[in-house]
Amino acid sequence: MNIFRFAGDMTHLASVLVLLLKIHTIKSCAGVSLKTQELYAIVFATRYLDIFTDFISLYNTFMKLVFLGSSFSIVWYMRSHKIVRRSYDKDQDTFRHYFLIVPCLLLAMIINEKFTFREVLWTFSLFLEAVAILPQLVLLQRTRNIDNLTGQYIFLLGAYRAFYIFNWIYRYFTEPHYVHWIPWIAGLLQTLLYGDFFYYYFHSWKNNKKLQLPA
C-alpha cells in the first residue's frame, strides 16, 4: 500500500466520522441527503460481496466492515432515530434513486472486466459511487446554507477521491500490468463532480467566510 492510497482511505474514514459525529452528538442531519447515504450503503453492499470469501489483509477486511457498518447506521439514524429524523430536509431531498441506479446497472452489464455476478455488481458499485454524491450536491444547492460539519464531510469525501487518483498513478508506474480503465474513468468522473464544490470551499476558507453556494 502506498501513501496516497492510505491517505485516501483515511480521509474517507474521516469523512464518515465527521458525519457520524454530527448525527450522533448534535442529533441533527440537516443538510445531509438521505438519498446519497442510501446510495453509499448500496455501493458498499455490492462492492464488498467478497468480504468473507477473499481475504486480502486484516486492514482491508476491517475497513470494509467499517464502511458497511457506518453507511447502514447513518441510513438507520436518518430514517428511524426519533430525534435525528426530524431534522432531515425531506421536502428538499427529492432526487430519484433509480435515475442513477438503473443506468449504472445497465452500464455495468455492458462494460465490465468479466461477465459474472460478482464482477458485474463490483463494476456497478464503481459507477454508482461515481454519481452517488449528486443528490447531496443538489440538496446543498437548494438549501444553500451549509454548516461546517456538512461542508467538511463533502470536502473530505472529495479529498478521498483525489488521493485515489494519485494512488492509481503511483501504482501504474510501480506495478507491472496495473491497468484498470473502469475504476479509473469512474473515479475520475467522481472526482470532477467535486470540482465546483472545491472551488467554493477554498474560496470561503481563503476569505475566512461561511461556505455558501451561489444560487
Binding site: D9, M63, F67, E113, N167, E175, P183
Partner: peptide, 10 residues
C-alpha cells in the same frame, strides 16, 4: 484464479 489487483482497494 486470483482476484484482479484493483479489487485490493476499497
Amino acid at each position: 484464479d486470483t482476484e484482479p489487483k484493483s479489487h485490493d482497494e476499497l
